[in-house]
Structures are given as structure tokens and as C-alpha cells.
Amino acid sequence: MSSAGQHARHRLDEHIHAPVRFSIVAALAQVDEAEFAHVRDTIEVTAPVLSKQAAQLEAVGYIKIRKGYVGKRPRTWLSLTPAGRTAYQHHLEALRSIAAGL
């Protein structure tokens, strides 16, 4: 829905709009936390691509990256921050408005 004379496209979040970052955020929005390898497999990207895009989302405060160990194996967990969750909701609303032709 347009507000203050702005088309919904102006409310798309530039950090989420890129396809891979959109997939990452959309996946993480469904959970509290997800393992890096599982996110990689779910959104079908390579580890370096996910790592780079996740770092960009972390830099703008949208996701949190937690590194730890399970036994002796290093493991990385990704989660959406409250700011990231809010931004994703706004982005989805803008997409719905565009999809509805508003």
C-alpha cells in the first residue's frame, strides 16, 4: 500500500532485496537460529557465497553469527536480529503491495 505518495517499491529494503540475501533472511525468519550448513543447503548456495552475504547482513545489523564447537568440530549458527526481523516484515509488506498492484 502506498503512503505519503510513495510507491511500495521505495519501501523495499536494499539490504534484503538481493536474491541470496532475501533467501537467507526469509529462511532465518522461520526459526530462532539455524546452522550455517543447513541454511546453505536449504537456499542452495555455496559456503563462500553464504559466508559473504551473511557477513554483509551482519554488518548492517540484520543477522547475528555465532561460532562455536560441537565436540571438536567448529560450527556456525545464524539468527535474525530484532532489527533484521522488522526489516524483513517491512520488506514483505512492500512486496505484497507490489504484488497486489498497489
Binding site: F22, S23, A26, A27, L28, Q30, V31, A34, H38, V39, T42, I43, L92, L95, R96, I98, A99
Partner: peptide, 14 residues
Amino acid sequence: AREQLSAVQARSIT
């Protein structure tokens, strides 16, 4: 936009 929204609903991570 509809395609992106459909893709979001179709893919479940949990």
C-alpha cells in the same frame, strides 16, 4: 513480487 512471495512460502528451513 508474487514469485518471490511464493518462493518464501514454499521453502521451509525447519
